[in-house]
């Protein structure tokens, strides 16, 4: 799980915020907090698809479902479990 959190932290800081040094908390509100926007959320979706080989439907890419790294990790874990 920690690995997943780190993976998201690295991706968001480096690829979305273009600042690899940026510190993001796992429970930090990313979209409601104004750090990333709905465009970045689609990139998060593509990142999940590429990294964990999951299909992320467009309807799942919403603020309610993916506002924090914790939520993103929970989503991926849930989907991986269902896949099994």
């Amino acid at each position: 799980m920690d690995e997943m959190v780190t993976a998201f932290q690295k991706f968001i800081a480096a690829d979305l915020l273009r600042d690899p040094e940026y510190q993001i908390e796992a429970n930090q509100s990313l979209i409601k907090g104004g750090l990333i926007d709905s465009f970045s959320l689609v990139q998060v979706g593509l990142f999940i698809e590429k990294t964990w080989k999951l299909k992320v439907p467009d309807r799942d890419l919403t603020v309610e479902r993916m506002d924090t790294i914790d939520q993103m990790v929970a989503y991926v874990q849930n989907r991986l479990q269902n896949k099994k």
């Binding site: 709905s38 465009f39 689609v42 979706g45 467009d58 309807r59 890419l61 919403t62």
Partner: peptide, 14 residues
């Protein structure tokens, strides 16, 4: 706005 994000914006960006 959520509907349009889910069914227009997201697929378009993708």
């Amino acid at each position: 706005s959520t509907w349009f994000r889910q069914y227009w914006f997201n697929p378009l960006v993708r």
